[in-house]
């Protein structure tokens, strides 16, 4: 379980960095910049990964509970 938590923490950190730098890029880009859409995709994917991570950790938690029962 502890290993899972560390994995979760580090994974969230990485995804946070991807989202954070994507936001910084977007803030510095003019509205009409053709690359905006690409950066948006990167950010959306990272946000999707965080949602996946949350689902995975919940499922993991349920499995651990089931095992102990």
């Amino acid at each position: 379980m502890n290993d899972d938590r560390i994995f979760l923490h580090d994974m969230k950190n990485m995804l946070g960095i991807i989202i954070g730098f994507s936001n910084l890029l977007l803030e510095g880009m003019p509205e009409e910049d053709p690359h905006r859409g690409d950066v948006d995709e990167i950010r959306l994917a990272a946000e999707g990964a965080i949602a996946l991570l949350a689902r995975w950790s919940q499922a993991n938690l349920d499995r651990v509970k089931g095992d102990t029962r």
Binding site: D10, N13, M14, G16, I17, G20, F21, L24
Partner: peptide, 15 residues
Amino acid sequence: DEPGIVRLIKRFAEG
């Protein structure tokens, strides 16, 4: 301890 986070906040806060 994650250098990427430090760099990210640095960029953000310097702004």
